Simulated scan of single mutants.
Amino acid sequence: MNPVLKTLTLPVLAEIETLLAGCSSVDEDLWDLLVDDLGLTAEQADAAVEMRPRYTTGIPTNGRCLLLQKLTLASNAPETKLPHHKHLNYDQLLDAYRTLLQDRPGQLLKLGTHWAAGLNTQGRLYCTPVDPDGARTMFEVFDFDREAFVENHWQCETPAQTQSAVLNPVFI
């Protein structure tokens, strides 16, 4: 993602993607919408408009923010589910966790029933067990283990469960 867009929130990025995929206006009008309606800076609007050609093949799959992860699936419907072979790999998944957490200091991203991801004060991603009732009980902090990631999902989870933390994030 262009560094000038990294400071934008996920809802703003989603709105930008909607405009990029569906706005039939000329680039100058789109640029005006981004600046006037969404409050982007001129530099941010330029960066977003530059990405417009990537959206002409279809609307990105729901939850797959091209601006963040550079993953799209050509589709006529925005709610299309990501096919099994398009699940995030280990590195993409950890990058998605970082992106979701970067503007949420002190919060954890829920990963299944008993685990959560967080960023420490130096911006390093970690994994920690949590109370299944949702309380922020951190017992220990671990690095993510590549060995625990098998065939595009974490052990003891289905691929859909692993991807759900990114597609439908829950913060605690």
Rank of each mutant, 00 (worst) to 15 (best):
N2V: 10
V4T: 15
V4G: 14
L5R: 12
K6T: 14
L8W: 04
L8H: 13
L8V: 15
V12Q: 09
A14P: 00
E15M: 14
E17K: 11
T18G: 15
G22D: 09
S24C: 09
S25Q: 13
S25E: 13
E28V: 14
E28Y: 13
W31R: 13
L34H: 11
V35D: 04
D36H: 08
Q44F: 10
A45M: 05
D46T: 15
E50L: 09
R52N: 02
R52C: 01
P53I: 07
R54K: 11
T56K: 03
P60F: 00
N62Q: 12
K70G: 06
T72N: 08
L73Y: 04
A74C: 00
P83W: 01
H84G: 04
K86A: 14
Y90A: 03
Q92P: 00
A96L: 00
A96D: 00
R98Q: 11
K110V: 14
K110Y: 08
L111N: 07
G112S: 05
L119A: 08
L119I: 07
L119W: 04
N120S: 11
N120D: 15
G123P: 06
C127F: 03
C127E: 04
T128K: 02
T128P: 02
P129H: 04
D131S: 09
G134T: 11
A135S: 08
R136P: 01
M138N: 03
M138P: 04
F139C: 03
F144E: 05
F144C: 07
F144R: 02
R146L: 09
E147V: 05
F149Q: 01
V150C: 10
H153P: 05
W154H: 02
T162S: 14
Q163L: 12
Q163H: 12
A165Q: 12
V170E: 15
F171Y: 15
F171E: 12
